[in-house]
Design a protein around this nucleic acid. Structure first.
Lengths: 331, 331
DNA sequence: TTGTAAGCGTTATCAC
DNA sequence: GTGATAACGCTTACAA
C-alpha cells in the first residue's frame, strides 16, 4: 500500500502538501496540485482512514446497536440508515444488542473504543442514566423507540398512542364492541402508550374499558398464542382483536384457526412487517414508518457527528393499513 | 479519555510495560503487573483500538458486503456471522452492495481503507478476477453463494442442484407429472444449478423435460406474478410448480388465487424464509441453512484474518420442508 | 524484567 | 505556498 510519503516523494513535494491536496480546501499552487494528483493516480493511493482518524480524532464512522440484526423490523431501519450515512461518506457499523443489557453494554463499549463519531441506539436493557452519560461523555447518541425525559432532542419514536387509537377506532367504527387487546409486555413503554390509544378510542365510542380483555406477554408468536388461548379459555366474549405487533397477531391467528374462529374475528396488528400482506386472509396492521425512522436516525447522527444543528422531527406518525382482516361485525 | 501514557505515569512504569500488560503474554513482574492493573482500573482505561490497529496493522475488524441489508435471507446470515465474530473479540462491519457492481465496488473500497482484516462478500455484479485479486492483494476474502473456479477454498455455497432435485422429486413422487419451474434469472448460477436438479429428478422418473414449462424472471414477487401469468395465459398444462425462491412463490400464489387454482396447485419454494410457514396454506420450501452459512463464513473469515488454516466445509446441504402446499395429485 | 525510542500514516502548527 | 516537525495512542525492537 502506497502511503502519503511515497506520493510526496514521487510528486517531489512534502507530505504536508499532499495532505493539503487530499483535504481539498487548502491553498496549494496549481502546479503542485497537479503533480500530486498525478502521483496519487499513478500509485493508486488511498489515504488510510485509520491514520486519518488517529490524527483528527474523527473516524467518520457511525455506530448502531439494534435488538435484532435479522428480523423484519430492524432490517429496513438499518438499510435506510446505512444509505443515508454512506452517501455522506461515513460508514455504518452495526452490532447486535439482542435487547439484553449485558450485550448492549458490550456492544457500546466495543464502539467506544473503535471509536465512532456518533451512535444510534435501539436498546431496552441499557439504563437511561447511562445513555445520557454516554452522550454527555462526548459520543453523541440518537435513541430510537425510547423516550427519555429531558433527552427528547436525541430521541426518535413513534406516536404509539395514536397508532393504538387508529386501530381500535376503526374496529369500533365497523361495529365491533368487544375488542380485545393482546399487548406486548407493559414494561415496554410502547405497550402502555398503545393501551392509552386503545382506551381513548373506547372512550370516544362510549364503550367501557374492560381490563379482562387486555393481556400482556412476549412480543412474539408464542406470546400471541398464549394470550389468545387465555382469551378463549376464559370465555371472554370478543369479536375483534388488536395485537401489539404482527408476530403476536400471527400467533393469535394460529389459535383462532384451530378453534375455527379465524374468519369471524376482526384483527389489526402492529408494525406492518413485510409478510402481513402475504397472509391469507391478509392482515391489517398499523404501519410503522421504519424506513423513515432509519433515515431520520442517519441524518440526526450525521449532524451530531459534525456538531451541526439539525431540525429533525422526533415523532413519527403511524398509519392504518386496511386489509382483509378488517371487516364489519357479522351477526 | 485516559491514554496509555496516563496509565504509565500513574503506575510509575513506562508505556512499554503497560502495553505488555495489556497484551498479556509478555514477561512482566507481578508487582508491575499489579500496579498497572490498578492504575487502569482507577482511570477506567480502555486502549484505543484505532491506535492499536495503526501500530499492528491489524484492525480486528471483519467486513461484510450483502446484497440486501434488510430482507429475510441476509438477516440470519449477518446475525450468526456477527455472533461468531464478536465472540472472538472482533467486530463486524456490514455494508450494503444491493447486488449492483458499482455499489459493491464502493463498499469494498470503503472497507479496504478502513481497513478490515478479512471480508465476507455476497456480491453478484463484482467480477470474478477482481475478487481473486483482492484476496491476493492481502485482504482475505470469503465468498458466499458464488463459486469461482480455482477459488473454491474461499467459497461457501449451497448444493443448489440437490435442492432443485429434492423439491422436484417429491412432487413427482406425489404423482404430479406436469411440474413447472419458475426460476430466477439464469444469469444467476444458482438458477442454473437448480434447473439441473429439476432435470435430474424428471429424468429419474422418465418424464421428458419440457422447455415450455420453464420461465425466468426477477427473484421477487413481481417476477413470480409475471411468470405465473405467462404460464397460465399460454395454456400450459401443469399441476405443480417449483419456484426459484419464496418470494417468487408468493407472487405466483397471488395469481393462482385470482384464477382460483391455488388449492389445486402443488408448490415448493426455495430458501424457507420465515414467513413461508405462516402463509395459508403454508408453503413448502427448500430450506437454506442460512444460519449455518453465516457461522461458517464468520469462522472462515476469522481464521483467515489470523492466517490460520481452517477445515470449514464449503458445501451446504438443503432440506425439503414439507407443508400444506405439498399434496398428492388430485384427479 | 524494564525502559528508550523508533515507527505506524495521517494532520496541524509553525516558520520560512 | 510550502516544508519541517510535532503530535495522535499504541507496539516493538533493542539496550540496559
Amino acid at each position: 500500500m502506497a502511503t502519503i510519503k511515497d506520493v510526496a516523494k514521487l510528486a517531489g513535494v512534502s507530505k504536508a502538501t499532499v495532505s493539503r491536496v487530499i483535504n481539498g480546501n487548502e491553498r496549494v499552487s496549481q502546479t503542485a496540485r497537479d503533480k500530486v494528483h498525478q502521483a496519487m493516480e499513478e500509485m493508486d493511493y488511498k489515504p488510510s482512514a485509520l491514520a486519518q482518524a488517529l490524527a483528527t480524532n474523527k473516524s467518520r464512522t457511525i455506530g448502531m446497536v439494534v435488538s435484532d440484526l435479522s428480523g423484519p423490523f430492524f432490517g429496513p431501519i438499518m438499510k435506510s440508515a446505512e444509505r443515508v450515512i454512506r452517501e455522506a461518506g461515513y460508514q455504518l457499523v452495526v452490532t447486535n444488542g439482542q435487547g439484553q443489557a449485558e450485550l448492549e453494554r458490550e456492544a457500546i463499549e466495543f464502539m467506544l473504543n473503535r471509536p465512532v463519531d456518533a451512535m444510534i441506539l435501539t436498546v431496552f436493557g441499557f439504563p437511561e442514566e447511562e445513555i445520557v452519560k454516554l452522550h454527555q461523555g462526548g459520543t453523541p447518541v440518537v435513541l430510537l423507540n425510547r423516550h427519555i425525559e429531558g433527552f427528547e432532542d436525541n430521541c426518535i419514536y413513534l406516536d404509539n398512542k395514536h397508532g393504538g387509537y387508529l386501530a381500535t377506532r376503526r374496529m369500533l367504527e365497523l361495529g365491533h364492541q368487544r375488542v380485545a387487546f393482546l399487548a406486548g409486555h407493559f414494561t415496554h413503554n410502547d405497550s402502555l402508550e398503545r393501551l392509552a390509544g386503545y382506551q381513548k378510542a373506547l372512550a370516544e365510542f362510549g364503550i367501557p374499558f374492560r381490563q379482562e380483555l387486555v393481556f400482556d406477554d412476549d412480543y412474539n408468536e408464542d406470546g400471541g398464542r398464549r394470550m389468545c388461548q387465555k382469551l378463549i379459555n376464559l370465555e371472554r366474549e370478543f369479536t375483534a382483536i388488536f395485537c401489539g405487533n404482527d408476530l403476536i397477531a400471527i400467533g393469535a391467528r394460529g389459535v383462532l384457526e384451530e378453534r375455527d374462529r379465524l374468519s369471524q374475528t376482526c384483527m389489526v396488528g402492529f408494525d406492518d412487517v413485510l409478510f402481513a400482506r402475504y397472509l391469507n386472509p391478509s392482515l391489517s396492521s398499523v404501519f410503522f414508518p421504519v424506513e423513515e425512522m432509519g433515515e431520520r436516525a442517519g441524518h440526526m447522527a450525521l449532524a451530531m457527528a459534525q456538531s451541526k444543528a439539525s431540525q429533525i422531527g422526533h415523532l413519527l406518525q403511524p398509519k392504518l393499513m386496511e386489509r382483509d382482516s378488517l371487516f364489519k361485525l357479522k351477526d
